[in-house]
Amino acid sequence: MKARVAAAAAIAALALTLPACSSMNQQWHHNCVVDSKERLIKDGTSSTKRVYTSCGSFVVNDSIAGGFNSQDRFNQLKEGRTYDLQVGDFRNGFMGSLPNIIDVNEVTK
């Protein structure tokens, strides 16, 4: 019985903290020109989608804040075009992490 209570408490704590991870430090970057983008394959089983812009470097990953359509969002971004990008999370050079693009709006001239 105690094991079930402990497991339920752990699941509840996880459910409360996961949304905060993907929604930390959300901000908009405006008029970002996409310089290039690439998909890095790791160990043949997982990949990272990176986007390099005039506003900085970002990743495009599935997240609670951005939804689970990261491949579509990555394909939406075209090199040479300008976008307003909503990003979440922090850049951490030591950990090799980049902010995650969670929303994209193309800027029309």
Results as ranks from 00 to 15, higher is better:
48 T>I: 14
55 C>W: 10
80 G>S: 07
89 D>V: 09
80 G>C: 03
27 Q>G: 04
63 S>K: 05
43 D>R: 08
97 S>K: 09
57 S>D: 15
86 Q>R: 14
90 F>Q: 10
7 A>D: 05
70 S>M: 04
2 K>H: 07
66 G>W: 01
101 I>S: 02
31 N>C: 00
102 I>K: 02
21 C>R: 13
105 N>T: 10
37 K>N: 03
92 N>A: 04
101 I>C: 02
1 M>R: 14
71 Q>S: 13
24 M>Y: 09
38 E>D: 12
92 N>F: 04
34 V>P: 05
23 S>Y: 02
22 S>W: 03
72 D>W: 05
53 T>S: 14
64 I>Q: 10
63 S>R: 04
42 K>W: 08
86 Q>W: 05
67 G>H: 07
23 S>V: 00
65 A>H: 04
27 Q>S: 11
31 N>P: 00
59 V>Y: 02
33 V>C: 03
19 P>Y: 06
13 A>G: 15
63 S>M: 07
13 A>L: 09
9 A>V: 01
65 A>I: 02
15 A>L: 15
109 K>M: 13
101 I>L: 02
21 C>F: 15
49 K>M: 13
43 D>M: 07
9 A>R: 15
60 V>K: 06
92 N>P: 00
64 I>W: 10
54 S>Q: 08
55 C>H: 12
87 V>C: 05
34 V>D: 07
49 K>P: 00
29 H>C: 00
47 S>W: 14
44 G>W: 08
2 K>M: 04
109 K>S: 13
55 C>S: 12
76 Q>V: 00
108 T>P: 00
81 R>L: 14
107 V>A: 08
46 S>F: 05
99 P>Y: 05
78 K>V: 14
7 A>K: 11
42 K>Q: 06
42 K>G: 00
80 G>Y: 02
32 C>S: 04
53 T>Y: 03
49 K>S: 09
53 T>F: 05
86 Q>D: 01
106 E>P: 07
58 F>P: 11
35 D>C: 01
47 S>C: 01
99 P>F: 06
52 Y>W: 07
20 A>T: 06
18 L>D: 05
25 N>R: 11
26 Q>G: 02
85 L>F: 07
83 Y>Q: 04
80 G>E: 05
22 S>L: 02
74 F>E: 01
94 F>E: 10
72 D>I: 10
74 F>D: 03
71 Q>L: 12
27 Q>N: 10
61 N>Y: 13
49 K>C: 01
72 D>R: 15
24 M>V: 08
95 M>Y: 04
84 D>L: 01
105 N>M: 10
80 G>W: 03
7 A>S: 08
81 R>N: 13
96 G>E: 05
46 S>C: 03
61 N>E: 15
9 A>S: 12
44 G>A: 04
43 D>H: 08
74 F>Y: 15
2 K>Q: 08
36 S>T: 06
36 S>M: 10
79 E>D: 12
95 M>L: 15
2 K>I: 07
13 A>Y: 06
47 S>P: 00
70 S>V: 02
70 S>G: 05
42 K>N: 07
47 S>E: 11
89 D>K: 14
25 N>F: 03
61 N>M: 11
10 A>G: 11
54 S>L: 07
81 R>K: 15
4 R>K: 09
52 Y>Q: 12
28 W>Q: 12
59 V>I: 14
64 I>V: 15
93 G>S: 13
85 L>E: 03
100 N>H: 04
104 V>F: 04
2 K>D: 08
107 V>L: 09
69 N>F: 09
103 D>A: 15
30 H>Y: 11
